[in-house]
């Protein structure tokens, strides 16, 4: 399971030096039960079930402040995203169907948001 998270995120969590810069930066820190800096070591330790069940993966704003500032290129938001994606895949599918997309297209809307909406939010 750790291998899956590592493969999905493309991150080597062993590069983490436990400096806590991610958590120190994170605007959603107070909302989280498991904090960003804990993700790296928990993935290394194989404590994936705890991560899958955590509130944090839904509280992460994907603002990427931690990605920007992590001095060790661990980029916790990518690990968190990998855990989130794992949960969604497990639950069995997307919340949007591709047929609904054309109607939702808006030149102001970044295509990334639509891709994210597939898995993240209910209609």
């Amino acid at each position: 399971m750790s291998e899956d998270i590592i493969a999905i995120s493309g991150i080597n969590p062993r590069q983490c030096m436990k400096c806590g810069k991610c958590s120190a930066t994170c605007p959603a820190f107070e909302e989280m039960d498991i904090h960003p800096h804990q993700f790296a070591s928990m993935v290394v330790e194989g404590r994936i079930d705890e991560l899958l069940a955590s509130e944090s993966i839904w509280k992460c704003l994907s603002c990427f402040a931690c990605v920007e500032r992590c001095p060790r290129s661990v980029e916790p938001a990518k690990l968190i995203e990998a855990v989130r994606v794992s949960v969604l895949r497990e639950r069995g599918g997307s919340f949007l169907s591709p047929d609904e997309i054309p109607a939702k297209l808006d030149p102001e809307l970044p295509s990334q948001a639509i891709a994210a909406a597939f898995r993240k939010y209910r209609k």
């Binding site: 806590g20 810069k21 120190a24």
Partner: peptide
């Protein structure tokens, strides 16, 4: 590690860390 530093309303600095 400190996450960020900013100037607060009193003209002092606020340090956010963990």
């Amino acid at each position: 590690m400190v996450g960020k530093v900013w100037e607060n309303e009193e003209g002092r600095l606020t340090v956010q860390g963990v």
